[in-house]
Simulated scan of single mutants.
Amino acid sequence: MSAPLVTRLLPWFDQHGRKDLPWQHPRDAYRVWLSEVMLQQTQVATVIGYFERFIHALPILRDLAAADEDTVLALWSGLGYYRRARFLHRAAQICVEQHGGELPRDFDALRALPGIGRSTAGAILAQAHGLRFAILDGNVKRVLTRYHGIHGHPGESAVERQLWLHAEAHTPVTRVADYTQAIMDLGATLCVRSRPRCGDCPLAGDCIAYRDDLTAQLPSRKPGKSIPTRATVMLILRDSQGRVLLERRGPQGVWSGLWSLPEATDPDGAWRIAQQHAQIDDVQTLTPFTHVFSHYRLNIEPLLFDRATAQRGIADNPQLRWCSASELGALGLPAPVRALLLQINDAS
Rank of each mutant, 00 (worst) to 15 (best):
R249N: 05
D137H: 10
H277R: 14
W23E: 04
I280R: 13
L286F: 06
I135E: 07
D306V: 00
F289M: 06
D206L: 13
G80Y: 04
L245C: 09
K19L: 04
Y147N: 10
L9E: 04
G80P: 02
L245F: 06
F54G: 08
G242R: 08
L245H: 09
W271V: 01
S77W: 04
Y50T: 02
R238M: 14
Y30N: 06
L131P: 00
G122K: 11
Y179Q: 08
Q181H: 15
T189W: 11
R321I: 00
R86A: 05
G138I: 02
H25I: 01
D137C: 09
L190G: 10
G100V: 01
I60Y: 08
E263L: 08
R193Q: 11
P318F: 13
V233H: 14
A177T: 00
R321V: 01
L186D: 09
L34H: 01
D137R: 11
V292D: 14
P11D: 13
S157A: 15
Y82M: 02
R27Y: 05
Q43F: 03
Y179I: 00
E36P: 03
P219K: 14
Q43P: 04
K19M: 03
R146I: 01
A308K: 04
F293H: 15
T120Y: 05
F87S: 13
L9G: 04
L73A: 02
L340Q: 12
L61W: 07
A278G: 07
I135Q: 14
T7L: 10
L304Q: 10
L303S: 07
E160S: 15
I273L: 15
L190H: 11
Q319V: 00
F293T: 11
A134F: 04
R243H: 14
P172Y: 06
P223G: 12
A85L: 05
G100Y: 06
S226L: 13
L64C: 14
F51C: 08
M184H: 10
D28K: 11
R53C: 07
L88K: 07
D213I: 00
L144S: 06
R111E: 13
P196D: 07
A121F: 05
T287R: 15
